[in-house]
Amino acid sequence: MNPELTPPSVTSPTLPKQSSTFMIEPMEGPMTLSNIMENLLKHPGRLLHACQSGNAEVASRLLIITLISLSVFGLLLGSFSGGTQLWASPLKITLGMVVAVLICLPSLYIFSALDGLNARLHQIASVLLSMVALSGLLMLGFAPVIWVFSTSTDSLAFMGFLALIFWIIGMYFGTRLLLGAAGSLGSQSKSYLKLWIIIFTIVTLQMSTSLRPLIGTADELLPTEKRFFVQHWLYFLDSNNPPR
């Protein structure tokens, strides 16, 4: 970790209301995983600067952070059912996210252009990677909470709801990064990007249904019946239905 920041000493009783900015600036310190995680949380603009300067090391470490975070989250989610789910759940969550990112990258590129952003594909890819890495990192932070509940409850619906809430929180901060980065890169509006965020959210939710079960058990590793995620949730909430 970097040396801790010395905070401003505040003596005045009146404090400013807001001090949040997204600055794309050169990164400080070594390219270690811990330093990159710290920058992802505190100064994501520095990582984007490094990625856009062609620093493949930062991009590869962001990818590693994403894969490890989602795998650990998946492992603890899988511990709810145990058995096959201990390896299947992390694998499905990680692969599902990789596939969602790959199929949504072209639309992000187009939608960012519609918002007036003059960026190259690798710039957009680095923003998307940072967004997913941040969401994944937050999921890693929530993993101990998931574990506490997975040892205490038998309710699939509750665990599913909890995982969904944590995913939404992770996505909120990830998309905040995306919109902040777009603003700093010169986008004129953000309406198309907000639309893309909705699309990406739907894709990830559908991915969780297409790769089910992520929680709970089933005879097959992957589902044989195709279903929309809303339909799947409604089916699941009906306690008379067997898990499928």
């Binding site: 710290e38 949380l41 505190k42 941040l134 990192l137 937050l138 890693l140 932070g141 929530f142 993993a143 101990p144 909470v145 506490v148 901060f173």
Partner: peptide
């Protein structure tokens, strides 16, 4: 249990 997520949210 909350140490990691509190630290992340604090920085974020």
């Amino acid at each position: 249990v909350n140490g990691m997520i509190n630290g992340m949210l604090g920085q974020l």
